[in-house]
Design a protein around this nucleic acid. Structure first.
Lengths: 179, 179
DNA sequence: ATGTGCATGTAACTGGTTACATGATTCG
DNA sequence: CGAATCATGTAACCAGTTACATGCACAT
């Protein structure tokens, strides 16, 4: 589902063929594992089916025809909703990062809203972890304690990053307001 | 696949029924989302198929019969291999944490080996991220830069945790040696 | 000739989730 | 009387991966 929306987001920036999408995703391999044909073409098909994109076939001599996909108004609305939709039970950093990339193409307040939402989500998760560690059985198992601590320290660093960036961005926004 | 091995790991500690597994996993909801029947029973079936576990049916009056699963020798070997098997392209913290919990029931050197392996994996991922940020196109997109920075800061905190714990554990091990 | 780039896709599989289905017992 | 606990499972679906399949053009 995420990849589907991410591709939709790319198409919101400019119309592309499946092949173009593949090329684009190659530079994001740290975020999305392998941008193989097997994920992209089926995703494009469902986007088409839902009428979130349209196709134009470009016929050229000497080369295989390209199918260029263009986002529709309905597609933009769906994308908007996806960006704002909570990422759900923390753990999927990737889902957040995908949204972050897309949200950066909207106005700053949208961007800030996303980060704040993520902040709340991670804080909730952190609370969950803390509660779990207070549970009777948890304290006994060494591995469990360490895994919890690992997860907690990662959550902490996420919060630190979010707070830092939220601070930075909101400062920038107010600077713009002053100008 | 991970859940399957994790359940196998639980059975290595003591024999249990599917219901027991479900109850145990409930306390680990921060690690494994929902320990629903739909994931557990099918997993047990495949463990049985592979002869990594055996079943004993406990018939009792007044209560539904329990199927108690017990790990086999082949099961233990499979578990051993899983613990040592690299967790693969970083991102799955959960896969690592599951292994960490299981590895804590082995000797300390096994535990240390796992953490060192994870350290190498995360360091490699960090390098990937750094390389990506050096790429021409990446620097232009704000969202992309931020997402990269987010991922980097998380990787950094993982490394810090691993180094700290590796230091602590190896110190403990050498203290034991001195005694 | 061999491989790389352009360009499309399908099929089978994996690892999981959600919801459904059943049925007795015990506790408040 | 209703809810929770004990106890088993199935079926449909979802998002994604791997591997397969095709075919022409251009460069080494």
């Amino acid at each position: 589902m995420n990849l589907r929306f991410f591709i939709l987001g790319l198409l919101a920036q400019r119309s592309m063929s499946g092949y173009d999408v593949k090329g684009y995703l190659k530079n994001l391999s740290w975020l999305i594992g392998s941008p193989s044909a097997g994920s992209i073409y089926p995703a494009l098909r469902t986007l088409l089916r839902d009428e979130w994109v349209t196709v134009d076939v470009e016929l050229r001599e000497d080369r295989p025809p390209r199918k260029v996909y263009t986002i529709t108004e309905a597609g933009r609305r769906a994308l908007d909703q996806w960006v704002d939709r909570p990422v759900g039970p923390s753990g999927s950093m990737k889902a957040f990062m995908m949204r972050l990339i897309m949200a950066s193409h909207y106005a700053p307040d949208r961007f800030v809203a996303l980060m704040r939402q993520r902040r709340a989500e991670v804080a909730r998760y952190q609370q969950d972890l803390t509660n779990s560690s207070a549970l009777p059985g948890a304290a006994t198992d060494l591995g469990q304690r360490m895994a919890l601590d690992y997860a907690l320290s990662v959550a902490q660093s996420e919060l630190a990053w979010l707070d830092r960036e939220l601070g930075r961005v909101s400062q920038e926004v107010s600077l713009v307001e002053v100008q």
